[in-house]
Design a protein around this nucleic acid. Structure first.
Length: 110
DNA sequence: CGGCTGACTCTGG
DNA sequence: TCCAGAGCCAGCC
């Protein structure tokens, strides 16, 4: 069974979590954008950082989508993500795609 | 240290 | 718009 959520990991995880925590309610971001923003090695590491989150975490992981504006998280977990987004007024357009150009958020330079 | 997997992305047909 | 292939990389066995 995959990724057993290693506790410590590295500083990159903390930067990623901190960044995601800054995403405003009702806005979205992507794995790739976050990776570039925090200087992570790549989009996959962001995905790992999300996977490492515990239930009840303060990190709004549901606001993170893939570059195509779609939910990457498979299965029921993906459905929960969709519900969480809907709960804050973020709804997918046609084909389950979200309007990234409109709702995408990037942390201000400084 | 080798091999496999995956909450990615990009390019091309 | 959908699908395949390739590149990339960290974590686990």
């Amino acid at each position: 069974m995959r990724a057993r959520v290693p506790p410590a990991a590295n500083g990159a995880y903390e930067r990623i979590h901190a960044y995601v925590r800054r995403i405003p309610r009702g806005r979205l971001s992507t794995y790739g954008a976050i990776a570039r923003a925090v200087g992570a090695s790549g989009p996959r590491q962001v995905g790992y950082a999300m996977h490492a989150l515990q239930a009840g975490s303060a990190v709004p992981w549901h606001r993170v989508l893939n570059a195509q504006g779609r939910i990457s998280l498979p299965g029921t977990a993906g459905e929960r993500q969709r519900e969480r987004l809907a709960a804050e007024g973020v709804l997918p357009g046609r084909g389950g795609r979200y309007d990234l150009p409109r709702l995408g958020w990037i942390a201000p330079e400084k």
